[in-house]
């Protein structure tokens, strides 16, 4: 067998379209998923109650079932319940819910390790629980768990390959599509593998860049 990458050239548009879908799904999921995780972590950090229990159930169900089943449940299950949902929306929703649950747990570890004195100082200054969470607890908590957070976002980006199973035109869908036309499996999947690798590296670098700005206080300091 000889390698011939020129066989991919007619399919550049498909690869590009798949890449764009994968990237925007990942970026949107990262932002919305982390926002969701912050809300979940805040509620679960508070007094036990119905909201806290419901969110706890959401986190446990999500973390203990396969992503592809969650995706199928949303895409095939919701219409059966009379809620029409497009493949793209189902994909985005599944990814956001997935990242939200894992990140909420990661973030909770960071919140739990907040020094008692920080809470006391905030209380002595008159901050409410929400104010204290927002201004005192959140940023240091994120900084403590940031490496795990980056890994989790990369896992979700790579896991997004699964959305090709409900015919969302992502990078993996593009690869399957091209391979079924030109039968050049090796070339197609090699290229797509490299693209995923670059995306993962790029995502990590982006996170680290943001982290250096956001957590500037950790540089050259002992605390």
């Amino acid at each position: 067998m000889t390698l011939d990458f020129s066989t991919l050239l007619p399919y550049l548009d498909e690869i590009l379209e798949g890449l764009v879908t994968t990237v925007w799904l990942t970026v949107a999921t990262t932002f919305v998923g982390i926002a969701l995780a912050i809300v979940v972590a805040y509620v679960r950090d508070g007094a036990p109650g119905i909201a806290s229990s419901l969110l706890g159930a959401y986190v446990e169900v999500t973390r203990n079932t396969p992503f592809i089943v969650q995706l199928f449940f949303l895409f095939f299950g919701l219409p059966a319940l009379g809620v029409p949902i497009s493949a793209t929306v189902a994909a985005l929703l599944a990814m956001v819910l997935n990242l939200g649950a894992y990140t909420a747990e990661i973030l909770r570890a960071g919140i739990d390790s907040t020094a008692r004195g920080q809470h006391e100082a905030a209380r002595a200054l008159g901050l409410s629980r929400l104010q204290s969470f927002r201004h005192v607890v959140l940023v240091p908590a994120f900084s403590r768990v940031y490496p795990s957070l980056i890994s989790q976002c990369i896992i979700v980006m790579l896991g997004s390959a699964v959305v090709s199973q409900i015919s969302v035109f992502d990078l993996t869908y593009a690869a399957n599509f091209i391979q079924s036309r030109n039968f050049r499996g090796f070339e197609v999947y090699l290229v797509v593998t490299l693209i995923y690798l670059l995306l993962a590296v790029g995502l990590r670098l982006g996170f680290e860049f943001v982290g250096r700005r956001l957590f500037a206080f950790r540089q050259g300091g002992s605390s």
Partner: peptide, 15 residues
């Protein structure tokens, strides 16, 4: 009533 603590308890991420 203001309070100052033994361990300072400044917020590390704020100037």
């Amino acid at each position: 009533v203001g309070m100052v603590f033994q361990s300072f308890n400044l917020f590390p991420h704020k100037t």
